[in-house]
Amino acid sequence: MPQVVLNNGVPIPQLGFGVFQVPPEETQRIVEDALEAGYRHIDTAAAYRNEAGVGAAIAASGIPREELFITTKLRNGEQANTREAFENSLKALGLDFVDLYLIHWPVPSQGLYTQAWKTLEEIHATGQSRAIGVSNFLDEHLDAVLADADIVPAVNQFELHPTFQQAPLAATSRSHGIAVEAYSPLGQGADLDAPSVTGLAKEHGATPAQIVLAWHLATGNIVIPKSADSARMRENLAAAAIRLTAEDVESINALEAGSRIGADPAVAAFSQL
């Protein structure tokens, strides 16, 4: 599995497994299947309410902790109580540390995300999170954090897929040494029927999903697809072996259409509580 080395030297598997919208009661089984398939990077969040299932799967797997990369995120409504929220996530996961802790959304209307970042820096100093970063941060949010930061975020995780590439935001993030991590990497399936994707799938003897994931990897994105089906999990993981040409990549780049699926971080204000 290819890895990306973050700006503090911590390596992260470039292709991971996300558990957004995985029901809490099914999380342990699904994550156990993912670990058995070969995933070593698991992405969860307090707002998903399935951290405990992720932790139970880790414990049941018997995989040494140092072989795993675990990400969780600060719930929006807890930005004023970041330390307590982090400790609750550790407890739910049953872990002594996580590999990456993210501010889930900036929620600019609260005016708390820069304060929360300073607490993440304190958490990082304890060793309880090997790296810290942000999610759904636009340029203005990055600027506000960086203006008073002692630590540059290691990751910016945001919606990114062929029809919504956010190329300027990705470029800004990378210019600061911040790795780009894509969620909804397949456009929640909407991008898989594009003729350029299906054509490349036939050419490479792959599935459309594998082609899009290979595009992410070729572009340098960290990517966290999800699936409840063990066969699909393995198919997604196998995308790491697909090598696209520069022309292949450009043909998918051309699909950009500004097709956002999720909320706009400039105005999103849900508490997640």
Score class of each variant (00 low, 15 high):
96 D>N: 14
259 S>P: 00
271 S>P: 03
71 T>K: 01
66 E>C: 03
230 S>E: 12
108 P>Q: 10
126 T>F: 09
205 G>Q: 06
211 I>E: 09
185 P>H: 08
213 L>F: 08
56 A>G: 14
242 I>M: 12
218 A>W: 06
207 T>Y: 10
259 S>K: 15
240 A>H: 03
157 Q>N: 06
44 T>L: 03
125 A>Y: 05
170 A>I: 02
122 E>A: 15
223 V>G: 05
145 V>F: 09
69 F>K: 12
158 F>K: 12
134 V>S: 06
248 D>V: 04
123 I>R: 11
128 Q>M: 14
118 K>R: 15
118 K>Y: 00
68 L>A: 04
32 E>N: 04
90 L>Y: 07
258 G>N: 12
4 V>M: 10
9 G>V: 09
205 G>L: 13
211 I>W: 08
201 A>D: 11
208 P>V: 10
128 Q>L: 14
105 W>H: 11
59 A>H: 11
228 A>V: 13
267 V>P: 00
174 R>Y: 00
75 R>G: 01
21 Q>I: 09
19 V>G: 07
99 D>N: 12
18 G>K: 01
69 F>L: 06
251 S>F: 03
252 I>P: 01
181 E>W: 01
48 Y>E: 02
118 K>V: 02
203 E>F: 04
191 D>N: 11
117 W>M: 05
7 N>T: 08
77 G>T: 06
109 S>A: 15
15 L>C: 07
203 E>Q: 15
175 S>Y: 02
174 R>T: 14
80 A>L: 11
263 A>Q: 13
12 I>N: 02
210 Q>L: 12
115 Q>G: 13
61 S>T: 05
152 V>T: 15
111 G>C: 09
29 R>K: 15
141 H>G: 07
221 N>T: 12
205 G>A: 09
271 S>D: 15
195 P>N: 10
96 D>M: 01
106 P>R: 10
114 T>H: 10
217 L>Q: 13
6 L>D: 05
118 K>I: 00
166 Q>W: 02
272 Q>G: 00
246 A>P: 01
151 I>E: 04
265 P>H: 08
249 V>S: 06
118 K>W: 00
105 W>T: 10
212 V>K: 08
87 E>T: 10
35 L>M: 05
123 I>Q: 08
177 G>Q: 08
179 A>Q: 11
34 A>M: 07
223 V>I: 11
229 D>P: 00
240 A>S: 15
233 M>A: 05
63 I>H: 01
223 V>D: 07
241 A>Q: 14
16 G>W: 00
106 P>L: 07
117 W>Q: 03
152 V>E: 10
99 D>V: 10
127 G>E: 11
44 T>M: 04
253 N>W: 07
112 L>G: 06
184 S>V: 08
206 A>E: 07
183 Y>N: 06
228 A>C: 03
210 Q>Y: 11
230 S>I: 15
115 Q>M: 01
86 F>I: 02
186 L>T: 14
15 L>M: 10
66 E>D: 13
24 P>F: 06
84 E>V: 14
